[in-house]
Simulated assay, not measured.
Amino acid sequence: MTTAHPRPRVAVTLGDPAGVGPELVAKLLARRENTAAADIVLVSDEAELRAAGADAGLPVEYSTEPGSGLPLLHDNGAARPAEPFERRRATAAGGRWALANLGLALDMVKDGRVDAILFAPLNKSSLHSAGMASNDELRWFEEVLGVESFTSELNVLPGLWTARVTSHVSVADVDAGITRENVNRAGVLLDRVLRDSGLDAPRIGVCALNPHAGENGRFGRHEIDVIAPAVADLADQGLDVSGPFPSDTIFLRARAGEFDGVLTMYHDQGQIAMKLMGFDGGVTIAGGLPVPICTPAHGTAFDIVGQGTADTGSVQNAFDLAVALGRRSRSTV
């Protein structure tokens, strides 16, 4: 049975314990409108929640019993590393704890117990020190969930989304990833996620790879041989898509409201523009997975840990997206 506005079940992890993630989650949960918006499952332990509340200057209210109306703690203390966490620096212990909690949240996805995941900022050095062999958490999510289809990190500001054809690879390796098939897959994914967010007919602009969109082949033929044909393929599938446009002007058009989404060719092509336009409110979504997974677009901010000053703009936006996408997913069950 479904309802018009079903309450989604959202798993929340506090990210790297050395960073501002625990403080951000404590502040998020202190807002009654947030705890009323979803059935929240905290994947953590009581020691971490106490520390989070101390940093935020706000006690974290939770319950270990379902049905209380409070966020439900799924205590993962058995997975806590024996060594104490060092604050304000990347460590293997912090990475192991972050991975253990995310792994449990992904198990909940597999079992159908949650509709979305929100995780506070991670530190890739910590994750790799802890043994994560994947380049980033998205590839790790793919492995854990057994996903073999195309995935992409999506970055979101209010009114504008981006997806990438290539992501966490060396700039020297970007060229090999710019294929007609990959541009097509990334465009389809961006269109689908925009529709899942509630847009009926999203407008997508596609970035060129080369300066001035290649200047008719003078600066490279990617636009002629790969990107433009892929844009035509996407249009043939019914997407409202246009380009390729020079990357030094496309975001001016997007900021003016011409596009709902921008498809970029590589990481910094979109990230620099998005962070300049809204660093304090940006959200990253792991796109192409069987469940929405959202996180603030900023990092662990070791320099301000323990000061109680971490801004909640991005984590609030990430939570709101996790709730909205999780509700939409749940309403189709």
Rank of each mutant, 00 (worst) to 15 (best):
T3E: 08
A4E: 14
H5W: 01
R7C: 03
G15L: 03
G19W: 08
K27H: 02
A30H: 15
E33S: 13
D39I: 07
I40R: 07
L42I: 08
L42N: 01
V43H: 06
A51G: 10
V60L: 07
E61D: 13
S63L: 00
P66H: 12
L70A: 15
L73W: 01
H74G: 00
A79C: 04
A79K: 05
P81I: 11
E83N: 09
F85V: 10
E86V: 12
A93F: 00
G94P: 02
G94Y: 03
G95Y: 01
L102K: 01
G103S: 06
A105I: 04
M108H: 13
K110M: 05
F119C: 11
P121T: 11
L122M: 09
K124D: 00
H128P: 00
M132G: 04
L138A: 11
R139G: 02
W140M: 06
F141G: 02
N155P: 00
L160N: 05
A163M: 03
V165I: 14
D175N: 14
A176Y: 01
A176D: 10
L189K: 11
R192F: 09
L194E: 13
D196T: 03
L199P: 05
C207A: 13
A213T: 06
A213N: 14
G214A: 12
E215V: 13
I227T: 07
I227Q: 13
V231A: 09
A235W: 00
G238S: 04
G238M: 09
D240T: 15
S242E: 15
G243A: 14
G243C: 15
S247G: 10
I250K: 14
I250H: 14
F251Y: 15
F251W: 11
A254G: 07
A256Y: 03
G257W: 04
L263D: 08
M265Y: 07
H267D: 04
D268G: 04
L276R: 11
G281K: 12
G282L: 03
P290S: 12
P292N: 08
P292G: 09
I293Q: 10
H298M: 09
V305T: 13
G306D: 04
A310Q: 13
D311N: 15
G313H: 11
N317W: 01
F319K: 04
